[in-house]
Design a protein around this nucleic acid. Sequence first.
DNA 1: CTGATATTCACCCTTAGAGGTGAATATGTT
DNA 2: AACATATTCACCTCTAAGGGTGAATATCAG
Lengths: 101, 101
Amino acid sequence: MLDETLIAIADPTRRAILSRLAEGEARVTDVARPFAISLNSVSKHIRMLERAKLVRRRIEGREHFLALTPAPLDEAADWIAEQKTLWAWRLGELEKALKDG
Amino acid sequence: MLDETLIAIADPTRRAILSRLAEGEARVTDVARPFAISLNSVSKHIRMLERAKLVRRRIEGREHFLALTPAPLDEAADWIAEQKTLWAWRLGELEKALKDG
DNA sequence: CTGATATTCACCCTTAGAGGTGAATATGTT
DNA sequence: AACATATTCACCTCTAAGGGTGAATATCAG
């Protein structure tokens, strides 16, 4: 899952879409409006965000309402936090080694 | 920069390389050993990590020693944290609206 | 029924990523 | 000099991503 989450947020268009959805639910057309690219391209980005479970779709007639489901971001945040912890720990060990030596 | 950082950590092989380097400096060959893929492929992954400034290389004779430089991870962590904050804020607003309504 | 709106489907093209192999380069060892 | 080690370079293949267009589908409004 982490892979798809990170791939999903690695694209600036998709990050912009997520930021837009952080303001609230929106239709595909609404989400697409600010972008210079075609509606179809935005639709594809949304599909990738759905695949990564970062976005949920509620269909009401011909309109598709999109909403954020940010849970997968936690896994990404956790990985980064763990890396930083390990790194900090190693720096601590290095310091100890330097002090002892 | 954020783009390259996220793309860099979106690949599981590269995340494994970073985890290895979190234990300490290592040569290209050392980093490559645990992987089933060719040394050359690992070399390419390392180049991407360097491009993202997540890894620094110190050349000593014929050996290239690699070390983690995790600073760019902060930017990624910040983006995720901001998204979660915005989302939490919006949930708060929703609750308020529900209570008032 | 007709026409407009919302979205996707089915294609196309181009680029980048991830993998491979074999040769080249540079350094160390004997 | 000859050989081994460490790494990259130059190429090839395959797949997926990101963009596009035009048609299809589904719904809503008249």
